[in-house]
């Protein structure tokens, strides 16, 4: 329940990396929650997108990376299209995915081997290609 807030933590290296990859200014978010309110998959998220932005800004890397929010994001851009501050939240989610996927441990979210043959038979290429672009390094 307690967090450290200090120069060391706030807007730390992790937050800056998210900003750099996404091209978004985390300080611009005023926490209105519009992104969470309109998100079609927020029901499955453990943190709302607005919370993820806040956690990033506070430098809470571990908490952010263990949340499922950015993995659940479907890049539908509903949040982006309605953000009153003009933040492209979908890009922030992508940036966090990439923070993980670009680690040298190659922590892929999805492996082809995990998908059943029956499913692979059924699923269209477009789903596989876009899925692997989002979930693997």
């Amino acid at each position: 329940m307690k967090i450290e807030v200090s120069r060391r933590k706030v807007h730390n290296e992790f937050a800056q990396k998210v900003e750099e990859i996404s091209g978004q200014n985390l300080f611009a978010c005023y926490q209105c929650g519009n992104c969470t309110a309109g998100c079609p998959v927020s029901f499955a998220m453990d943190l709302g997108p607005h919370q993820v932005i806040r956690f990033c800004l506070l430098g809470l890397e571990e908490e952010v990376l263990k949340s499922n929010t950015f993995w659940m994001c479907a890049s539908c851009l509903q949040c982006t299209s309605r953000c009153p501050k003009g933040l492209d939240i979908a890009r922030i989610m992508e940036a966090i995915r990439l923070v993980i996927l670009r680690k040298k441990e190659r922590l892929d979210r999805l492996e082809v081997a995990e998908l059943s043959e029956e499913f692979l038979e059924r699923v269209p290429q477009i789903a596989l290609i876009s899925g692997f672009r989002k979930f693997s390094s």
């Binding site: 926490q31 969470t36 309110a37 709302g48 607005h50």
Partner: peptide
């Protein structure tokens, strides 16, 4: 109405 309560963090 699709809103949010940021005090609980939940979509409303």
């Amino acid at each position: 109405v699709w809103g949010v309560d940021t005090l609980t963090g939940k979509k409303v």
